[in-house]
Computed example of a mutant assay.
Amino acid sequence: MDKTPKLPVWDSEDRADVRPQWQSVTSETVFQNPWIRIESHDVITPTGHPAHYGLVKFANRAIAVLPLHDDGTVSLVGQARFAVDAYSWELPEGGGPFDEDPRTAAFRELKEETGLEAAHLHEILSFDMSNSVTNEVAVCFLATGLSQSDRAPDETEAFEYARVPFKILLDAVIKGQVRDGLTVVSVLRLHHMAVTGELLPHLRDAILS
């Protein structure tokens, strides 16, 4: 007799029509600036219990661009991050209004932060940034066919620049040396694309060899 435990059928659909939902009873904006709004909510949880919840809403969609050169290197920017009080090496990234095409924002952020212009830009992943406390969503792009022009960072940005072989960047992500979430997710996604045959052969060979 086969005694192998039977795994439950996994349904990744939302199924909001049949599952208990959160209910917001009262809400109040306690802080707002041009980028975020912090709300305080009295809620009824999916279990039916009352609770209090804080929510951070973002004015923009998060955008990340992985600039992959034909030789298998990736362009990174380095900057000091106030929120974590640490220096961070990461992909070019920023934000774009929800009524703007994410591709437009991606082209802009890539050009401003690195001076790179891309002949090809492909969306490779979208995800929720931290769904327990914020509704922020992110879209990640792969940029190829790169050419260099002038950078145009804004007055608050002080960048360093590096061009790193993908294998070294992947190793730094795995070891926790590169910690920025958008960068981690994009690098792992690109590796997955390479090993599953989703990349053009010359790019696949450049990053895996």
Rank of each mutant, 00 (worst) to 15 (best):
F31R: 13
D101T: 03
G48H: 09
D71F: 12
P46R: 06
Q79H: 08
T134H: 05
T45L: 12
I63V: 10
V25S: 08
D11G: 02
L125C: 06
H192C: 02
D85L: 04
A138N: 08
V43K: 13
D14P: 00
R204A: 13
M1H: 15
T4S: 14
D42I: 11
E93W: 02
I174D: 14
C140Q: 03
T144P: 10
N60H: 13
V178P: 01
P5A: 11
A80Q: 06
L142D: 04
D71T: 10
S27Q: 15
V195F: 08
H120M: 08
Q148L: 11
R189G: 03
S130L: 11
T29C: 15
N131K: 07
A206E: 06
D17P: 00
Q23I: 12
H192Y: 10
A206C: 09
L66A: 08
D2V: 11
L146N: 09
D99G: 11
A194I: 14
W10V: 00
V173K: 06
E136Q: 14
F159S: 08
V84N: 03
A51V: 11
E109F: 03
W89Y: 03
L116R: 05
G95N: 05
E13K: 08
S88D: 05
R37L: 09
D205W: 01
T156R: 15
I207Q: 00
E28V: 11
T183H: 07
S12C: 01
D180M: 04
R37D: 07
N33C: 15
N33W: 12
A16S: 13
A194N: 12
A119F: 03
L146I: 08
P97E: 05
H49V: 11
K175S: 13
M1D: 13
P97C: 03
T4N: 13
L55K: 12
E136V: 03
R189Q: 14
R15C: 00
V133Q: 10
A83P: 00
E136Y: 04
S186K: 05
P5H: 10
L199S: 00
Y161M: 11
L199Y: 00
V178Q: 02
G78T: 03
S186N: 05
E155D: 15
Q177V: 04
H49D: 14
Q32M: 12
H191C: 05
G54S: 08
F98N: 08
R108Y: 06
V74Y: 02
H49T: 13
S147G: 06
E13W: 02
K6M: 10
N60G: 10
K167D: 15
S24F: 13
D14E: 07
A152M: 15
H122A: 11
E39A: 11
A206K: 06
Q148H: 07
I44V: 15
D70W: 04
R61D: 02
L76G: 01
V184F: 08
V43Y: 12
D42C: 11
L142G: 06
A86V: 00
A64M: 05
S40G: 10
F166E: 11
A106P: 01
P165C: 13
T45H: 07
E198T: 04
V74P: 01
H192N: 08
E123T: 09
I207A: 00
F58W: 13
R81I: 06
V173G: 04
T104F: 04
R19Y: 01
E100K: 09
A158T: 15
A138F: 01
A172N: 11
Q21L: 13
G181W: 03
K167Q: 15
E117V: 14
S40M: 14
T26H: 14
F98V: 05
N60P: 01
